[in-house]
Amino acid sequence: MNNWLLRAGSILLTSVVLLLWQLVTATGLVRPIFMPTPAATFVDLWRGLTQGDLLALTMSTMQRMIFGWLLASLGGVLLGALIGLSSRARYWLSPTLELLRPLPASTLLPVGIALFGLHPQMLLGIIAFGAIWPVLLPTIHGFSSIEPRLREVAKTLRIGPLAFALKFGLPNALPDIIAGMRLSLTACLIITVVGEMITAQQGLGSTIIMAARSFRSTDLYAGIVLLGVVGAANNALLGLLEIGLTPWRTART
């Protein structure tokens, strides 16, 4: 019952925040050019989704993000498995990886533009390449941190290298991989939006920056709300993936 009360309270608090937003904007305390009323924002959002091209723009942003993410995850896991399973590869490559790690993924955009120009494929490639790091490093860790006792179990059962990678390495790395894929998806969303802003390719990123440049603040807010929804959907998706793929970590007596 206390639980229920708290939940109701948390909904109430959100409503109060929305109400405050409505109050300060409707009374003209904040100029509508900086902050439209929530009502106007949601009406604009609804109209944009049903009649305008907001839905199509969201789809194109999400498509880029998801494609980039899948490429990054695939590449990161394969490469990470190879490096993680071989202590020699780990030894020789770790300083190089350590040097590249601190570079923000968005810095790849200028490099990509300078190298390849403004192609749509270039943007996708940069999203994938920039988002590979958050998957690669945890995957390496996951494949290299197999319990030594389990290595011995594998040896006494004479399990071959491929079966070892699949039956021991992959499940051992899976929690790390999922955590990495979560960060990677966030990185993908960020690089996608920034990439769209810079290259003016169709999507929510270019839409909101155009809206800001032409002072269409309701469109801007609608775009931000949509990006928030995409972010929340990402979190939910990864949560499901985690429960579905690593049942042994969530199952407890």
Binding site: R149, V153, T156, R158, W248
Partner: peptide, 22 residues
Amino acid sequence: GPSPDVAIVFQDYGRALLPWRT
């Protein structure tokens, strides 16, 4: 080297089982 004829039960069962398998 190891052979299927020889099996070993380790002391630290907590580490010798695959946590991701039933």
